Amino acid sequence: MYKILANTLFLGKEVIYLPVCHSTNDLAMDMLKSGKVTEGSIVIAGEQTHGKGQRGNVWKSAPDENLTFSLVLKPSFLNAMDQFDLNIMVSLAVVEALAYFDLELLVKWPNDIYTKNGYKVGGILFENVISKGKVSGSVVGIGLNVNQRTIGLDHATSLINISKRQFDLKTVFDLIVHRIEQNYIMLKSGKHKQLKESYLKQMYLFNVWSKYSDENEFFGKIRGIADDGKLIIEKESGMINFYAFKEVRFIKE
Rank of each mutant, 00 (worst) to 15 (best):
K221Q: 15
E181M: 12
N128R: 09
N25T: 06
T150D: 13
E236Y: 08
I185K: 10
S70F: 14
I162H: 06
L175K: 14
M1E: 05
D112G: 06
S23V: 06
L159D: 10
Q194M: 14
N79R: 11
L144K: 09
S34I: 01
E39T: 07
E181A: 09
V72F: 09
L98I: 08
V72P: 00
G143W: 02
K132P: 00
V95K: 04
L205R: 14
E217W: 02
R165S: 12
G12Y: 06
L9S: 14
L32S: 00
E236W: 09
D214R: 04
E253Q: 11
V121E: 01
T171H: 09
S138G: 03
D227S: 07
A28L: 12
V43N: 03
E247W: 11
M239I: 12
A156K: 04
R223N: 11
E14I: 11
T49P: 01
I44N: 02
V208W: 08
Q194G: 07
E215C: 06
E181S: 13
L200N: 02
G46I: 09
G51N: 09
S158E: 14
F242V: 02
L92D: 02
F219E: 15
L205F: 03
A6H: 12
E234W: 08
E181Q: 14
L205D: 06
I4L: 10
Y114P: 05
K191V: 03
Q182T: 11
D112L: 10
I222M: 14
K36P: 00
K60T: 12
Q148W: 13
Q202H: 15
I44H: 01
L200T: 03
E181D: 08
K33I: 01
I180D: 05
N7H: 13
D30Q: 10
L73M: 12
L18Q: 09
D30C: 01
V37N: 05
L103E: 08
K120M: 02
V20I: 14
H178I: 14
G238E: 08
Q194C: 11
N128L: 13
L153A: 15
L103V: 03
A93C: 03
P19S: 07
F126V: 03
K36H: 05
K201M: 04
E127T: 11
V58K: 15
L32D: 01
R179T: 12
L98K: 05
L11D: 03
L169C: 09
E234Y: 07
A97M: 04
F245P: 00
I113Q: 04
V90S: 04
K221V: 14
P110T: 13
F101N: 01
S23Q: 05
G123A: 08
Q148V: 08
S70G: 10
N216T: 10
L18D: 05
K201V: 00
I185R: 14
L78Q: 10
V208H: 13
L144A: 09
G122K: 04
R249I: 02
L67H: 02
L105R: 01
L11Q: 02
